[in-house]
Simulated assay, not measured.
Amino acid sequence: MTKSSPPSIQALYDLCKKTFAPSATRPPSSLAINKLCSLLDTIGPADVGLDDGNKENDRGHGPLGIKLFNRASRWAQPITYVDLHEGENFTMCMFCFPASSVIPLHDHPGMTVLSKVLYGSLHVKAYDWIEPANIQKIKGAGPATVRLAKLVVDEVLTAPCSTSVLYPKSGGNLHSFTAITPCAVLDILAPPYDEVAGRKCTYYQDYPCNSFPTGEDGHENGVENVEYAWLAEINTPEDLYMRSGVYEGPPIQT
């Protein structure tokens, strides 16, 4: 008798458990990440309990068809967060976006993150810090300090598409998501956010390079390349709405 294959999401969990085990190579090798990407590339909405009837529409209805908020601003409708697995070594989760909703620019300190767009179109804008750090003190109005970063991703991802990967210091560790259409993203974060361990999510505002006169004489700092921007740390935006959703896909055996 032939043993049936496990559901794709179970196979993904099993591979993550192996790849991000405490005894595994840290950070994971490119071969290990490529294996995860190859498996993630095969996963679609149905593999995680989503289908056309679950997709959020432009009338402000959530994944379960429940009216949420009247459309007021691009962050006014909540993004639905669905937890698939939360462990010490990695997190598996989904974000379901209404059209035009935004997760603003934020970081993933010391983390490797794999993201797969399951359906819809998503604009991704991502930066990496310039090393050694270039930090400027700002005189007058505006943020107290800004730090220089390089733009590495500025594109729209439309399903079906390949898995995106960011690393602790490359690949766009600081990124923002803007939903062009209703869409969903499956994320793997390793290791997960942990404030005790110093992996706290920090939000940022980006500014063009010529935004601030920082020299003693009040002149511009001289960095004007469009591939670079100054990032200033900000508080978590008050109008960023998220709500918890329920995972309705195949059970994951941990």
Rank of each mutant, 00 (worst) to 15 (best):
M1I: 03
S5I: 07
S5K: 08
P6N: 13
I9L: 05
I9A: 05
A11V: 02
D14L: 03
C16S: 12
K18M: 09
A21Q: 08
R26Y: 09
L36G: 11
L39H: 14
T42R: 07
P45Y: 11
G53R: 03
R59L: 10
P63T: 14
L64T: 15
L68A: 09
N70G: 15
R74C: 07
D83Y: 00
H85A: 15
E86K: 14
N89C: 15
M92K: 12
M94G: 00
M94A: 11
F95R: 04
C96Q: 02
F97H: 13
S101W: 01
P104I: 08
L105V: 08
L105F: 04
L105R: 08
H106T: 14
H108D: 05
G110S: 13
K116I: 12
K116N: 01
L118G: 08
Y119L: 09
S121P: 09
V124K: 02
A126K: 01
W129K: 01
P132I: 03
A133G: 11
T145N: 10
V146G: 03
L157Y: 13
L166D: 02
L166H: 04
G172K: 08
L174Y: 05
S176Y: 10
A179S: 11
P182I: 10
D194Q: 06
E195I: 15
A197M: 15
R199S: 04
D206R: 05
C209N: 07
S211C: 07
F212S: 00
F212V: 03
G218P: 06
V226T: 13
A232Q: 03
A232F: 06
T236M: 01
G245I: 13
G245Y: 04
E248A: 06
P251R: 03
